[in-house]
């Protein structure tokens, strides 16, 4: 479908199986041209701040949206969200929580930390697939964001 210059998605997901489902769904819908998958919050910050294995801007382009799981080893999803949303340059990146948790507390904390969207992973594959499709269209197609 659409191929924009920078349609990079950063997927922060510790469960490899879930990551594969997300990535394959995106591929099925031909949405993302690049999905960066990291396993934990630290790696995500390394990517966003171009450090560690992601040193250099060309090596780690700024994502147009971050898909974030809440339950992560070391730094939790909410902690990472807080870091991003309080960071001077990263705060403008839309962050979408994609998690298994429907806990009210998680929802409240996520919104309190200025999350842009909160999605719960459906168990049903068709719905999961539909969610990824809609998510892609919304954030990569419909959604407008500043160029710089």
């Amino acid at each position: 479908m659409l191929t924009k210059s920078n349609n990079t998605i950063l997927l922060v997901e510790d469960n490899p199986a879930h990551a594969e489902i997300v990535i394959r769904s995106f591929q099925d819908h031909h949405i993302a041209n690049q999905i960066i998958h990291v396993l934990d919050g630290e790696a995500a910050l390394d990517y966003l701040l171009h450090r560690g294995q992601f040193t250099g801007v060309e090596n780690s382009p700024r994502p147009c949206v971050i898909l974030l799981d809440l339950r992560l080893p070391k730094i939790s999803g909410l902690q990472l969200l807080h870091e991003i949303k309080t960071h001077e340059t990263l705060s403008s990146i839309p962050v979408v929580i994609l998690t298994t948790s429907e806990a009210e507390r998680d929802l409240a904390l996520a919104y309190a930390n200025h999350v842009n969207s909160y999605l719960v992973k459906p168990v049903d594959f068709t719905r999961f697939s539909q969610l990824i499709d809609d998510l892609g269209i919304y954030w990569l197609d419909w959604n407008r964001r500043p160029v710089n």
Binding site: N15, R24, P122, V123, D124, F125
Partner: peptide
Amino acid sequence: SPLITIGGFAGF
């Protein structure tokens, strides 16, 4: 979490 995995891969 495993249920989602099972559901997803059953679809695939």
